[in-house]
Computed example of a mutant assay.
Amino acid sequence: MKYIKKPIPVEAIQWNGNNYGEIREFYGKDLENIGQSTLVIDTLEGRMMCPVGSYMVQGTIGEFWAVREDIFEATYDRLGTNSYNNLM
């Protein structure tokens, strides 16, 4: 059988290496920073690396995960820029 993801809005922020304060506020607590370029976040599956350029995403139940920039941009659209405008 084939499935398609439901269009569920999520919150996200991109880690650019210089916005730790914004990331910390979004995440709600301090994060481990490895070499000033990779953050470590706690996810439902365990600890996950979030290198510079990646997006930190918060799901519908408050869970967090990291998504590589290329995958994020291929998978997500910003609300207000497409047919999903009315979801929020």
Rank of each mutant, 00 (worst) to 15 (best):
D77S: 13
I61Y: 14
Q14S: 11
E11R: 11
V57F: 04
Q58N: 09
L87Y: 05
P7C: 05
L39R: 00
E69W: 04
A74V: 00
R78L: 15
V10S: 02
T81C: 04
Y27C: 05
V57T: 05
G28Q: 07
L87T: 10
N33I: 15
Q14V: 12
A66S: 15
K5Y: 06
K2F: 10
I8G: 02
V57K: 01
N86P: 00
D42V: 03
I71W: 08
Y84V: 00
F64K: 00
N86Q: 09
Y27T: 09
G53D: 05
T43S: 15
Q58M: 15
V40Q: 10
G46P: 01
G62Y: 09
G28W: 12
P9A: 14
Q14R: 15
P9C: 11
G21Y: 12
T81H: 07
K5D: 08
F72E: 02
G35Y: 10
D70H: 08
N33R: 09
G46F: 04
G17Y: 12
K29D: 13
I4R: 15
I61H: 14
D42C: 01
D70S: 11
F72P: 03
L39M: 09
V52I: 12
C50A: 14
N19D: 12
Q36C: 04
S37A: 11
Y84H: 11
V40W: 11
W15A: 01
D70N: 12
Y3Q: 08
I13V: 14
G59H: 06
F72L: 11
E22F: 05
K6D: 01
N16I: 04
V57D: 01
Q36G: 03
Q58R: 15
N18G: 09
E73D: 06
E63W: 02
E11V: 00
V10G: 02
F72G: 03
Y20L: 14
D42A: 04
E11Y: 08
G17Q: 09
N85T: 14
K2W: 06
P7T: 09
E73A: 03
I23R: 03
I34P: 00
P51L: 06
N82P: 00
G62N: 04
R24I: 08
V40K: 06
M56A: 04
N18S: 13
E73F: 01
T60Q: 12
S54N: 10
M56Q: 05
G80W: 08
